[in-house]
Structure formats: structure tokens, C-alpha cells
Amino acid sequence: MFKVKYFEAIRTTAVILIALVIAFLIISLVSEQPVKTIGIFLWEPLSTLGHIGNVIEMAIPLMFTGLAVSLLFRANMFNLGAEGIFYFSGVVASILAIHLTTLGGWLHPVVAILAGSLVGALLSAIPGILKAKWNANELVTSLMFNNILFGIGLYLLNYHLRDAKAFANVSFKFEETARLAKILPGTRIHTGLIIVLALIVLAHLFLYKTKWGYELRMTGINREFARYSGMKTAKVIILVHLIAGFIAGMGGSVEVLGMYNRFQWTALPGYGLDGALVAMLAKNNPLSVIASALFLAYIRIGADMMARLSDVPSEMISIIQAVIILLISAEQFLKFWKNRMLLKEAKANA
């Protein structure tokens, strides 16, 4: 007999299965050869080292933003600003990757990434401070900030970084010294993976093993209780915004320097909002972010492969993502079942 405490795990599994079934249904409707296409979607990402590499490369930015959003959600902050920060920090890191020519060797990417992270932290603190000091709705301000940062970033790209000789709307080339090293031959997996895994472990320790993490968790569960206990909840809220902004900013910087040789985002890349999805699948647990980012990367690469090798466009994946978000945050989904279990247990105890 299932117990109530396994309920969340069962529900997450059910959501993933439903999402996959919907993917199969769409493929069946659209594709001439549905079975073959489903095969590509499921197996191709794991078929070669290169493809597995693609999955991991894709998972790196998702882990960064997923971790950042997890911490914010943990503090009960509905802040979706990781999107704009990820983008803008990428611009900042690019500027340094292009113009900072005097720094040699390993120091160049370190400086560029730290600059991007710090800018991210500062930008993220703004909605945090507005929330903590004046209770301004962090959701609305962070969403507005996404658009503001995108506008400014695009302006910087178009007016200051743009390489007129290039064919597309891209920046000048980064200095070779600025780019992150590849760590696995045959793939484009870069040192960003090590950075993000280390960050995840640190975040786990911070959240569960330190008094600051304790304050964050208590503030998130019940801010009134935290305040009553003597915690400075305003400081906690600003702190979590700083940390989340730092992580999201680092993600943008690492992604740009790890995967590209020019800055080339002319639209928001979407990783910030994907981060919300990763965080939800991970139930806001830092360590679970790894698996949930890998899963999301896996189905995305699957969709990419599918688009390349069959007749179904990769945009299908956004439909699947939408389904996952709608169901995973649906409190009532399968709740009737939990209630029945609770009723049974209560009767058994009575």
C-alpha cells in the first residue's frame, strides 16, 4: 500500500509520464512514421558520446537557473528575474571577453564570469530590496526587469559590440583566452559543468547545514514565524536575491564563454523561465536540480534530433514543457487520491 509520504514522488513520476504520452500523441498525429520518430526522440540523445555530450551541455545552463530559482522559491519569493539576468550577465561577460585583452590564461574567463555574476547579483537585489523594504510585488518588478535588461542588453549588442563584418547580428569574436576549456574530448562539455556541480553542492550545504540556510527556509515557509522568532527577514530576502542573481548571472556568463565564440542572443534565451520548470521538478531541492535539468535537457535534445532526422519540428517540446508546468504545480492533481489515503489513515488511527 502506498503511503502519503511517497505521494510527491509518485505525482512527479505521473506528470513526467503524462508529458511523454502527450509527446507520443503529438508525434503520432504529425509524423508519417510515428514509431520511428518516437524512437529517435527517445534513443537518439543517448546514442553516441557526442549526443550525450549535447544533453549535458544543455543541462549546464538549466542547472544554473534551476538552482537560482529553487533558492528563490524556497524563500517563497515569486521572482522570475533569472531570465533577464542570465541574458544581461552574458552580455557583461562578453564585453570583458572581447575587450579585456591584457589578462592572459585562466584569469580571463574567471574575471569575466565573476563580473557577470556580480552584475547579476546586484541586478537581482533590486527587486529584492524593493520587496523587503516596501513590499513591492517582486513578481511584477522582476518581470519588468527582464524586459528592461533585455532592452539594454540588445542595445549594447547592436550599438557597441556588433561586428559589422559578420553576416548575422552578432558581437565581435571573444579572445581565445576567455573561452572555457572543454573537458571531455568528442563533446563540447566545458568546465562550466564542474562549476555548476560545485555550486549545487555548496547550495545544498548552505540550505540545510548553515544557520543562514535555516533562516532562508523558515522565512520561506512562514515569514511571520521567522520574524517573530527574531530573524531579520528583510535581510534574508535580500540575501537570497543576491545569491540567486549571482548564480543566474554566473550561468549566463558561463554559457556564453563555454558554448560560443561570439555573443549572439537577439532574443531572451528562455533559460530563466526554464529554470522555474527545473526548480519545480526538483521540488526546490538543490541536489535534485541535477536530475531535473538532465531530464529537461534530454527531452530537448531528443526533440532537436527528431527535428533533424524526421518530419516533426522541435518546437513540440515547448508544448510538452507547458504541460509539465501546468501539472507539476497543480496542487489538486491526484489530490483526491491523497485525500482518500488520508481519510483511510485517519480512520485507522481513530
Partner: peptide, 8 residues
């Protein structure tokens, strides 16, 4: 289903 309106 009580999905969070923002996430929805």
C-alpha cells in the same frame, strides 16, 4: 487543479 496562476 489549483495550478499556481503565475506558473500557469
Amino acid at each position: 487543479f489549483k495550478t499556481h496562476i503565475i506558473l500557469g
